[in-house]
Nucleic acid binder design. Structure first.
Lengths: 210, 210
DNA sequence: CTAATGTTGGACCGCGCAGTCCAAAGCGCA
DNA sequence: TGCGCTTTGGACTGCGCGGTCCAACATTAG
């Protein structure tokens, strides 16, 4: 069954996002996937490197399902979708008790300067994420100031969220990412024309913008 | 000489901030420090773990010298100092050709969930950094809106910078951190009363705020 | 010149892990 | 029941690395 393969992949994804790639051994993965016998692993994967690549893809898939999907809901106002998306990331982090941070960020920090293959794939992952954000900003264009640079703004959003997840992990306090999320929404709201902010920012916080 | 110790420490700092802790072997460190003989290392350090802790301290020292110092220049307007500080981080990253990212961030992502000792020390490092930013914001209080939350804002600044360094590293493009720095300054300027922005943001960019 | 006291280099040990291999256990099929 | 074929478990190998140890060398003192 290709089912087994997925089982291994998910176990690996969990361990790697917690401990990092190098700190996760094949034996750990096999044990954690409720299978036994290392040959099983090498039946489905060529090498640990291949596992790493596929875990990265899988993480992005899941992220796309649970987080990025919100960005494409056609019935919701774009600005509101942005807020929901940020909330989703906070929720995801809260569910894990502040541990584990961003699966991409962790892998990125660990491998970017060590393994060119990983670096390129991580770059692709971030690029796909960024492109989703750009689409949303494009959709929201009528509500935004004319000189908003979607490329720069989407990068800013990703960087801030990644940094927030990292700090949350270090402090083991979900409050960190929550606070940063609030500010990030305010920053995004700053790019919108008056009255187009929707539920992105509570009225009180808008005092600073006006 | 305690000089040798520093030599090892600096070699290790460089390697660790590029490759990460686990990917850096004692032999690499010794070779890179132009010494030879592993016993030399163990003459100055109890273990690799101790090396890691001290590298973290040393990185923070250097960062405090070259970056954080700007925050305390008493002759410069606080808001302007903030801008200079952000510029300094961009410059530091540019000097390394986009590689290596933040020394703290790299170590944090790698070790936070693996080694409690590292996590605590990294938490301390971030806290010290945050406290410097808070001091500056306190100094700038007369120029800021009354409801500015210094704790939250300082966390936001650190998170965004850390995320920016990470993405710069992944894309190997210093332009990323440069762009994010511009936006970050605009976000900070948003908290200042009109006319108190100084050189933080070029007049053109302020259009969005007003 | 010799003895005592550091330095320095590197051989060596043990361990953990990626990756290989084979033997035993299922399992269809007649 | 007996025979091939696949699945499964785990023993084994080679290697890299953290950490120890000791032998050779330098240095200073008498």
């Amino acid at each position: 069954m290709g089912n087994r393969r997925l089982q291994i992949l998910d176990a690996a994804a969990e361990l790697i996002s917690e401990r990092g790639f190098t700190q996760t051994s094949i034996e750990d993965v096999i044990k954690h996937s409720k299978l036994s016998g290392k040959s099983h692993f090498y039946h489905y994967f060529k090498s640990k490197e291949e596992l790493g690549f596929e875990v990265l893809n899988r993480q992005f898939e899941r992220f796309a399902e649970r987080g990025l999907a919100i960005l494409r809901e056609p019935m919701i106002d774009p600005m509101e979708r942005m807020g929901l998306f940020i909330d989703a990331i906070v929720t995801l982090q809260a569910e894990r008790g502040g541990r584990g941070g961003s699966p991409f960020g962790t892998l990125a920090a660990e491998m970017a300067d060590v393994h060119e293959g990983f670096r390129l794939r991580i770059e692709t992952v971030f690029e796909r994420w960024a492109s989703q954000l750009r689409s949303l900003l494009w959709e929201a264009r009528p509500q935004l100031h004319d000189d908003v640079d979607a490329v720069r703004l989407s990068r800013f959003i990703i960087a801030t969220l990644e940094g927030a997840l990292l700090m949350t992990r270090v402090k083991r306090d979900v409050g960190v990412v929550e606070g940063i999320a609030v500010d990030l929404k305010r920053f995004i709201a700053m790019h919108a024309k008056d009255g187009a902010v929707g539920t992105l920012v509570p009225a009180r916080a808008l005092a600073n913008v006006a």
